[in-house]
Amino acid sequence: MAAVQNDEDAVLGVAARWRDRKRYLWLYGLVIPLSPFLAYVLVRYLELGVFWASGAIIIAVICPLIDVFAKLDTANPPESAMKALENDRYYRYCTYVYLPVQYAGLIFGCYMLVSQPMGGAERFAMAATLGIVGGVGINAAHELGHKRTTVERWLAKIALAQSFYGHFYVEHNYGHHIRVATPDDPATARFGESYWRFLPRSVSGSLRSAWRYEKARLGRRGKSTWSLRHNNVLNAWAMSVVLYAALIAVFGWQIAPWLVAQAVMAVMFLEGANYLEHYGLLREKRADGKYRRVAPEHSWNSNHVCSNLFLYNLQRHSDHHANPLRRYQTLRSMPEAPQLPAGYAVLILMALVPPLWRRVMDPRLLAHYDHDLTRINIHPPKRKELFAG
């Protein structure tokens, strides 16, 4: 008994001494929704219109540079500290505060678009900044939408309103997490499938899947599919309609094309993340024909510290899929998972150029499966070509 007590005391001692070194660094995530304000300051004082794209510059240039020079973050919290870390409300407040800053940035960005003497390229640059704000907002919605509290689930829908992608709340939780790393999942990219082929397949497939799920769920409960109150796809879209209508009423119809442009860029950012997160990975089938449970090796992982701070540890994707209810601050590095060569921003840009993507990622995927093509999720048009070779 004394030995057991000593072990328990040692565990409690580790938990008491451990401190999250990134605790206050999570606030850096607010740099993105603040980027429209930063853009205005930089353009005003440096008189360079390129800084209207500050949000895109932060994500695509500054963050990857920090990742290059910073050490990989492979540290995990001790098991004894996980419960207290999970229940620490400070971390959820970091995601809650993203939303008011997100919408303040959106409104300010719209004001800039209609009030400042911008050329077409400069307006596109500001739309790109707003698109990054909305895209990272989808990621904040991703974190909130996985939680069981009603408040957090509604906050997830609010975060998605800017990008007009409210059905993501339904499809991601009740479709993607069930079918991930299988040919049945529209949000899982296949080996040999370019980003440009994946994008329309994922967007349309996710939309159809979300609608089917809500229709079936409401049918089981005896509710109408067209109930705005009960249909989580419709009420999420309704938020976007109200938001866009309000912005057009305030800023005029001239803002409408830029709202569309920023939403498109936000969705492209999200789908770029979807593309790389499970590229080519495949869950094996059991003897009964069903897919085995999701494991760390079914998601690409990244421990690049700066991009993980901006994306609330989204890049520790392997642990997220293995434990989808786990909050971002407790997600662990998984050394057994396939590892990405860079952070998400770099790889999303790489995905836009399919030959470059294939040159970098295809060898890693093949090595992960010991060059056994039968274990890989292959794009159907490429299957005959690959097996013939």
Rank of each mutant, 00 (worst) to 15 (best):
Met1His: 07
Glu8Cys: 14
Ala10Glu: 14
Arg17Met: 07
Trp26Glu: 11
Val31Asn: 05
Leu34Thr: 09
Ser35Asn: 10
Leu38Asp: 03
Tyr40Glu: 01
Val43Asn: 06
Leu46Ser: 07
Gly49Val: 06
Phe51Met: 09
Val61Ser: 08
Phe69Tyr: 15
Ala70Glu: 08
Lys71Val: 14
Ala75Ile: 03
Pro78Ile: 04
Pro78Lys: 08
Glu86Asn: 10
Tyr93Ile: 05
Tyr103Phe: 12
Ala104Pro: 15
Gly109Ile: 15
Leu113Pro: 03
Val114His: 14
Gly119Met: 07
Thr129Glu: 03
Ala140Cys: 14
His146Val: 00
Lys147Phe: 07
Arg148Trp: 05
Arg148Val: 06
Thr150Leu: 12
Trp154Asp: 11
Ser163Leu: 00
Tyr165Leu: 04
Gly166Pro: 04
His167Ile: 02
Tyr174Arg: 01
Val180Ile: 00
Leu199Ala: 14
Arg208Met: 10
Glu214Leu: 06
Gly222Thr: 05
Ser224Cys: 00
Trp226Met: 02
Arg229Glu: 04
Asn231Val: 00
Ile248Pro: 14
Val260Cys: 14
Val260Ser: 05
Val264Gln: 15
Phe269Lys: 05
Leu270Phe: 08
Gly272Ala: 13
Ala273Cys: 05
Asn274Phe: 09
Tyr275Trp: 12
Ser299Phe: 04
Trp300Gly: 11
Asn301Val: 02
Leu311Ser: 05
Asn313Ser: 10
Gln315Phe: 01
His320Lys: 00
Pro324Trp: 04
Gln339Pro: 15
Leu352Phe: 15
Val353Thr: 15
Pro354Gln: 09
Asp362Thr: 12
Tyr369Met: 04
Arg375Tyr: 12
Glu385Val: 04
Gly389Thr: 02
